[in-house]
């Protein structure tokens, strides 16, 4: 589906970084990744301390930032070859994000927040409408993430607990079946029990949709739940030099 947007680099890979180098303007090199590949459907745990370039890496994967050199290919599309508007559309169509907290627009209800990506992506809107009504799908996702739509769908998001808000954010990231889910410390505001429960619900839904998961966190305790786990330092050359 992305073939029309960019030349295919590796159809099998969800993410493929090669000889990627990035530094903020005027700053030292932050990322220097020779090669990093995530297969489709794989669930990867990426561990890194804050300030290690995690957020920058996610910005690169989302196409909000561009590397100075090297290749960022997501789902076979080389993001560097796309224009700004195309990258915005690519992100809307193919990637769901869940952040640490405050993921939701405070002026929209729970259900409106879940439906929000459909406003920006025709592809995801059609994916939902093929199966039925958008509201029904939003409610199904809320239910799958253990939120009763009858009780919560119309609430302002501020009325929910932090854990509930994160589950709403997950439902929003997953609506319309994006191929890639990128989660940035989504559980750090939750207590240990809620953390496990949240991940189980998230994984169930990702498995159903066949989504690839890249999960970034400093909390190594969650690593065993993933197919593969690695440290950002393992792939980022600048960190290896810095820590030695």
């Amino acid at each position: 589906m992305s073939a029309r947007l960019a030349p295919k680099t590796d159809a099998a890979a969800a993410i493929r970084l090669e000889r990627l180098q990035f530094s903020w303007r005027g700053g030292a090199r932050l990322l220097d990744i020779d090669r990093f590949v995530v297969a489709r459907g794989e669930r990867v745990f990426l561990q890194g301390a804050s300030g290690s370039g995690k957020s920058t890496l996610l910005g690169l994967l989302g196409g909000v930032l561009l590397p100075q050199s090297g290749c960022v290919a997501v789902l076979g599309s080389d993001l560097s070859s796309l224009g700004g508007a195309q990258r915005d559309r690519f992100r809307a169509d193919h990637i769901g994000f869940v952040f640490q907290q405050f993921n939701l627009l405070p002026f929209l209800s729970v259900r409106e927040n879940v439906l929000l990506p459909l406003r920006f992506s025709a592809r995801r809107r059609h994916a939902v409408l093929r199966r039925g009504e958008a509201i029904a799908e939003a409610d199904r996702l809320l239910r799958a993430l253990d939120l009763d739509p009858a009780r919560h769908a119309h609430k302002p998001v501020g009325a929910l607990s932090v854990g509930q808000q994160q589950r709403v954010a997950a439902a929003r990231a997953l609506i319309g079946d994006p191929e890639l889910l990128i989660a940035d410390e989504p559980t750090s505001a939750l207590d240990a029990d809620a953390r496990g429960a949240f991940l189980h619900l998230l994984f169930d839904e990702c498995r159903r949709a066949g989504a690839t998961v890249v999960f970034v966190s400093h909390d190594r305790g969650l690593a065993p739940m993933f197919d593969r786990s690695l440290r950002l330092a393992d792939i980022n050359a600048t960190l290896r030099m810095g820590t030695n």
Partner: peptide, 9 residues
């Protein structure tokens, strides 16, 4: 948040 959802600047 809007940017993450794919909203252009």
């Amino acid at each position: 948040i809007l940017r993450a959802l794919g909203a252009p600047p």
